[in-house]
């Protein structure tokens, strides 16, 4: 494997990590706000807060890790994406600021501030929408070079049906991932009411998820034939993903083995996400930027890889400790004691 491919794989892995844990977080915010609206607050809020409070900061680090990493390994992306993404990313940053501060503010100060909860829930839907636009842009056709500077064509972007199918996919995926995970967590906590509610949400959101995936394939065929053909070449990856999806739904319908459902869910998105990534190869931004012409110099690449390996040696045991304490600790999950600072 060349250093370029290694670099991009590592970053893709971290983006995948962010996708899963941020989806849980974003979806939870939405469900929390929704339960406030329909008067079911008591059922969901406790479960959601117990899981999310200790991990929201870690969630954010995955994102930071990805964008620092991509600029490190592929400095030219700063030029292309940095110039063009000022507006969508700034908006996402604003929303992230609202979310990031929420848990701290909520758990200690303005407990039950309704306006803030709604903003928080809404932000959870708008952030994936704003960030997923980047995926549409990477397919090409929305950036033109004017006077040597890349310029984003907003009109083309927002009238494209590809953009909207990707946004729809992002939203449905967020809600589906979140609901499935929280079903498992609520079940572990022994909270039957929350389990049933979340299980229902998971089943509901699986429908737009399936539809939008098909929509994207149709759109991509019109928009970027090369990418579409390569996706067909890797059809088996998407096939495995689809099978896992179907089994997850069956398990949810059976009302048991929620732990297996979560692993299948992760598998489903892993295969789809890596299938998408591999078929996108070698482009970072079609057709302007490939992973080869944007790669950093070899010395830097090697030192980044070394830093990465050393960093992982530090992170993996630490993350394991977090999981042990907050995800797999029965007393904590069931809220037997108040472990609050």
């Amino acid at each position: 494997m060349s250093l370029e491919v290694l670099g991009v794989s590592v970053l893709w892995l971290f983006l995948f990590g962010y996708l899963i844990i941020a989806s849980i977080d974003f979806g939870a915010g939405f469900f929390n706000a929704y339960s406030l609206l329909v008067g079911k607050k008591r059922i969901l809020t406790v479960i959601i807060q117990r899981y999310l409070s200790p991990v929201w900061e870690i969630t954010n680090v995955f994102l930071v890790f990805f964008f620092v990493g991509i600029v490190g390994f592929f400095p030219r992306t700063a030029y292309f994406y940095g110039t063009t993404l000022l507006v969508p990313v700034s908006i996402a940053l604003g929303l992230l600021a609202i979310r990031g501060s929420y848990y701290a503010f909520e758990s200690y100060g303005s407990r039950g501030h309704k306006g803030y909860s709604f903003m928080y829930g809404l932000a959870g839907l708008l952030i994936p929408a704003a960030l997923s636009v980047v995926l549409a842009i990477s397919e090409g056709g929305f950036i033109t070079i004017i006077d040597d500077n890349p310029v984003l064509d907003y009109a083309a972007l927002f009238t494209s049906s590809l953009t909207w199918s990707i946004v729809l996919l992002a939203l449905a995926a967020v809600l589906y991932i979140s609901a499935t995970f929280l079903t498992w967590y609520a079940n572990k906590a022994g909270d039957r009411e929350a389990t049933n509610l979340l299980r229902k949400y998971a089943l509901i959101w699986s429908i737009p998820l399936a539809i939008s995936v098909i929509g994207i394939m149709v759109e991509l065929r019109k928009h970027n034939v090369i990418h579409f053909d390569r996706m067909i070449d890797f059809w088996y990856l998407f096939g495995i993903s689809a099978v896992m999806f179907v089994i997850t739904i069956i398990i949810l319908l059976m009302r048991r083995h929620y732990g297996v459902a979560v692993w299948l869910l992760i598998g489903q998105f892993a295969f789809a996400f890596f299938g998408y990534g591999i078929s996108h190869y070698p482009y970072l931004l079609y057709p302007h930027l490939t992973i080869y012409d944007s790669f950093t110099n070899e010395t830097m690449a090697i030192s980044l890889v070394i830093a990465f390996v050393l960093g992982l040696l530090l992170l993996i045991p630490s993350l394991y400790l977090v999981f042990k304490l907050f995800l797999f600790d029965k007393d904590y999950v069931r809220g037997k004691e108040d472990h609050h600072a």
Partner: peptide, 15 residues
């Protein structure tokens, strides 16, 4: 990352 992980643990394990 390192700090974030242990701060989360520290804050929620007082008792």
């Amino acid at each position: 990352f390192f700090e974030a992980i242990f701060l989360g643990i520290y804050l929620y394990t007082w008792d």
